[in-house]
Design a protein around this nucleic acid. Structure first.
Lengths: 120, 120
DNA sequence: AAGGGATATGTTCGAATGAACATAACGATT
DNA sequence: AATCGTTATGTTCATTCGAACATATCCCTT
């Protein structure tokens, strides 16, 4: 029994534009220089990964990655400057919220549900 | 473009046991003294509301509400002492995390994505 | 020019989650 | 005992979202 937060950036229409899922994906892209590889690592299909990146870029209205096709390597994808900044900012954001959440959990909820375990 | 957090309590198997949805539901139950009324207010069906309460109680392993059937009123549902404590604790928990998140957003993300609007 | 690996998209299938429908049981009041 | 409004459950339908399948395109290398 532990707390967890799913963090999002929402549009005015309450659509989820960005969250930990896309953050992890972009992390993997930065690391491997390829959407294909990134998707493989995360156990997601390329189709999904590609679509996620596209929708994120549409949401922000600007490029997060720079992609190239063809060549001996087949192609590649790297983060734009904005992409890198976004990742770093999100990292700090989520980390801060996460630790804050754990504190609040210990202070308010733990005393109430503390002794409860749930293995059934 | 604003931040949002979905807060959960997770079991060891990563199942979502409790969150804002059930919190709001229990709030409405406390206010109206009836699952039926609570569901009506939230625009959810009674079936769903009843099931949600049941699963929450199973998750915590103890009663959150005390229900009675029959009578002139048809029946009624009130929160147990534990239920009330849980609601209050969750209220403080979410409030704290929420304000913390907004601070973190202003500090880290706003500077990066600040000028972006998305009405398309 | 042929090959290979990654990007680019459309499409179809399946699982999960909530909405909706249908009853049954209950019990104070009349 | 008949009624009425609520609790209690099973079941079925719809919608959403990711998984999976299928191609097409690109372009450096050989």
């Amino acid at each position: 029994m532990e707390p967890h937060a799913k963090l999002y950036l929402l549009s005015d229409e309450d659509e989820g534009l960005f969250g930990d899922g896309k953050w992890r994906l972009l992390m993997a892209v930065r690391e491997h220089g390829s959407i294909q590889e990134a998707a493989r690592e995360l156990g997601r299909g390329y189709r999904k990964a590609w679509g996620d990146i596209k929708s994120a870029e549409e949401a922000f209205g600007r490029a997060i990655v720079r992609k190239t096709r063809g060549g001996s390597s087949g192609g590649a994808t790297e983060l734009t400057e904005f992409g890198v900044q976004l990742l770093d900012a999100w990292e700090k954001f989520r980390s801060e919220v996460s630790s804050c959440m754990n504190e609040a959990f210990e202070e308010y909820l733990k005393p109430i549900i503390g002794g409860i375990d749930d293995e059934r």
